[in-house]
């Protein structure tokens, strides 16, 4: 009898451990299935392996490069959502920062740095610094509105989203700045004959943010605030400062995404660029297991979530699903991911 119950206990413990690892595992599994499907669709064939492999690689680099911007934003969104917040202003912040970058670098008569006589590498460095500072500033203001102003994150960032896009469009009306070709190297530098700079930025940032979330005091406090704000407050965590910093970080990441975006094609459609990014970033985080209620979420999960959405898009493309229908699949995958995770948690 004693021995039997002993075994039962052991069994319970084992189950719990597996259960917690499983949620990440499930996400990874879905991704692997999608990748296998994709591989098959690309016509995997032993006889012409070399040919197949180069097509496969090219396809992958395309996928990753196209999603690097949103991928980077979704990393920050994960932090925001873990604190129980949301940031709808990321797309508009992206165009606002983009507009400033282009105005600074414009090779035409109105270019700010050009008129100041700053060109070449110093100009690019300065632009990058200013862009990141601007992103940080926008994020910090949003954070302060939420914490000191006690405005709900949804409302504060909805307001910021409207203001930033409208102001940007107004000032950039009829103005077409031209970005120096050299600046485009930031995203288009070729290594071998492959262009994967944006992927490297995304990967590096993912690793950094992973370490921030796991190892730093800030990262731990982000989770504490999201899990039980009152408990964190009573423990002496400066809840407002943690929250504000999360939005500042979001702003910095958006600025980096904006630099990548501008340097990829050298232009930006201020009316449409970045619109819908907030939803895609949220979708990636949610598919990756981040809870909209806060307190739960991981960087690894979000990267996997982003990849799932990206690979699925690619598959739909390869299958020839009409573009208007593709968004529906994105919606489905988000809903299924949450249903699945709810079941697993229960």
């Amino acid at each position: 009898m004693e021995a039997m119950t002993g075994n039962k206990r052991e069994g319970l413990k084992g189950f719990k451990k597996r259960g917690s690892a499983e949620s990440q595992f499930g996400t990874a599994l879905v991704l692997i299935v999608l990748i296998i499907l994709q591989t098959l669709v690309l016509g995997f064939d032993y006889d012409s392996f070399g040919h197949w492999f180069s097509a496969w690689t090219r396809n992958w680099i395309n996928i990753l490069r196209n999603n690097a911007g949103i991928g980077i934003i979704s990393l920050g969104m994960t932090f925001v959502i873990i604190t129980g917040g949301i940031d709808l202003a990321v797309g508009s912040t992206l165009v606002a920062v983009g507009a400033v970058i282009m105005t600074l670098l414009d090779t035409g008569p109105k270019g700010i740095l050009g008129n100041l006589g700053i060109t070449g590498a110093p100009a690019y460095t300065l632009t990058i610094i200013l862009a990141i500072l601007l992103g940080w500033l926008i994020g910090t203001i949003i954070g302060l509105l939420i914490t000191k102003g006690r405005i709900a994150p949804f409302v504060a960032t909805l307001g910021a989203m409207k203001i930033l896009r409208s102001v940007t469009q107004h000032f950039m009306q009829g103005y077409n700045p031209r970005v120096p070709r050299e600046f485009l190297k930031i995203s288009n530098l070729q290594i071998g004959n492959l262009m994967f700079m944006p992927i490297i930025y995304w990967a590096v940032l993912a690793v950094i943010l992973y370490y921030i979330s796991k190892r730093t005091v800030f990262g731990r406090q982000v989770i504490a605030v999201g899990s039980n704000e009152r408990a964190a407050q009573l423990s002496g965590v400066n809840v407002n400062r943690v929250k504000t910093r999360v939005y500042s970080l979001m702003g910095v990441l958006v600025a980096i995404a904006s630099i990548i975006q501008v340097s990829r094609i050298g232009s930006m459609d201020f009316a449409n660029a970045g619109s819908g990014y907030e939803m895609d970033a949220i979708a990636a985080a949610v598919v990756g297991g981040t809870s909209m209620a806060g307190g739960r979420g991981t960087i690894v999960g979000t990267v996997l979530g982003m990849l799932i959405i990206a690979v699925m898009n690619n598959l739909l493309n390869l299958f020839g699903v009409p573009p208007f229908l593709r968004e529906a699949f994105k919606g489905l995958i988000v809903i299924f991911a949450v249903l699945f995770q709810r079941k697993e948690k229960a």
Partner: peptide, 20 residues
């Protein structure tokens, strides 16, 4: 109780005054 359920005992105990 004012504890963070997914944190360990140590993480809860030093929350807000973590050694860095």
């Amino acid at each position: 109780f004012m504890l963070i359920p997914q944190f360990t005992v140590v993480e809860n105990l030093v929350l807000g005054s973590e050694p860095k």
